[in-house]
């Protein structure tokens, strides 16, 4: 697994267990960002190993490439996760801070996904 990704997931896990680590109740956003960043780092590392030219294109294009050329199942999982995390992390209207349970699910999913990506890198 990508070191950057696992690093961020570890921090997110710590915060999920002890939200008080982050001041002023900002923990749900912090975790969202961390999990999303973990996913992005996982993808970056994957492209760096396999197809460095893809690392330069937009994230959306990267996800499309993953689905079309690498593994459609892996790609669609990654796409779904990335959009969900972006929606939760970026400010869009009508969205509120995710709950601990949602974050835990994302955390687990991103963990499995980056693991999968890393195993293909090898």
């Amino acid at each position: 697994m990508s070191h950057s990704a696992i690093h961020r997931l570890d921090v997110a896990d710590r915060i999920l267990h002890a939200p008080d680590l982050v001041e002023d109740g900002a923990w749900p956003r912090a975790c969202t960002w961390l999990i999303r960043l973990a996913l992005e780092h996982g993808l970056d590392d994957f492209w760096a190993t396999h197809r460095p030219e893809v690392a330069e294109v937009s994230r959306r294009a990267q996800l499309l490439t993953l689905t079309r050329t690498v593994d459609s199942d892996l790609g669609s999982r990654a796409t779904e996760l990335w959009y969900a995390l972006s929606r939760a992390a970026h400010h869009h209207a009508y969205e509120l801070a995710p709950t601990g349970a949602e974050l835990r699910t994302w955390h687990t999913d991103v963990h499995l996904l980056t693991e999968d990506l890393r195993s293909r890198s090898a």
């Binding site: 999920l16 939200p19 709950t99």
Partner: peptide, 8 residues
Amino acid sequence: WEVVRGEQ
């Protein structure tokens, strides 16, 4: 107010 719900 925003209600945020953590684990447990």
